[in-house]
Amino acid sequence: MAFGIMMLFVAILCAIAVIREVKERNFLAVGFAGISFLVFGWFSVMTIFVSGAPEM
């Protein structure tokens, strides 16, 4: 659970980087930060969903 939260923090930092680099018009960095946001965001959401779900 803690690992998923750390990856969510990394995804938030990537989203901030996307916004900052769009303002600076650095599109290569926008691409890398955007892909990182998607990968880390998906990984963190799925980790929290799987490890945070109660067992039945």
Rank of each mutant, 00 (worst) to 15 (best):
A53G: 03
G31P: 05
E55F: 07
F9M: 13
G4K: 00
F9P: 02
G41I: 00
V18S: 10
C14G: 05
E21D: 15
P54H: 07
V39E: 06
S44I: 06
M46K: 08
G52W: 00
I12L: 02
T47C: 01
A15R: 06
M7C: 03
M46D: 06
K23M: 13
G4P: 00
E21I: 00
F49D: 04
R20D: 13
V39H: 04
K23N: 13
V39Y: 06
N26W: 04
A29E: 15
I19K: 14
R25P: 05
C14I: 01
F27E: 11
A33H: 02
A29K: 09
R25F: 11
A15Y: 11
A17H: 07
I35A: 15
G52I: 03
A17L: 09
M1P: 01
V50Y: 03
A17W: 04
G34F: 03
T47S: 01
L13F: 15
V39M: 10
G4R: 02
A11F: 08
F40G: 01
M6R: 10
F3G: 10
A11M: 09
F9T: 12
V39T: 10
A11N: 04
F43T: 09
V18M: 12
L8F: 07
M46Q: 08
G4V: 01
L38Y: 03
R20Y: 11
F37S: 09
F3S: 14
V45C: 06
A53F: 04
F32R: 04
I16T: 11
I35G: 10
V18F: 07
G31L: 08
S51P: 00
L8V: 06
I5R: 08
F43A: 10
M6D: 06
V22R: 15
L28D: 12
F43H: 04
V22H: 13
F3R: 15
F37K: 03
S51V: 07
A11L: 02
R20Q: 14
G34I: 03
F32G: 15
F9H: 07
V39I: 13
S44Y: 04
V10P: 00
F32M: 14
G31A: 07
V22E: 12
A11Y: 06
G31N: 08
R20V: 09
L28Y: 10
L8H: 01
M1A: 07
S51H: 03
A53M: 12
E24I: 14
A15G: 15
A15I: 09
F49Y: 12
V50C: 00
G31H: 03
V45M: 10
I12P: 02
L38T: 14
G52K: 02
S44W: 06
M56S: 13
L13Q: 13
F43Q: 11
N26Y: 08
I16P: 08
L8P: 01
L38C: 12
V30W: 04
E21C: 11
V18H: 08
E21V: 04
E55W: 07
I5A: 07
A53Y: 05
C14W: 04
A29Y: 08
T47E: 05
M7S: 02
L38K: 01
G34T: 03
M46H: 05
N26P: 10
L38N: 03
I16F: 07
F43Y: 09
I12R: 01
P54A: 13
W42N: 04
V22S: 12
E24F: 02
M46G: 00
V30S: 10
A2D: 11
M7I: 10
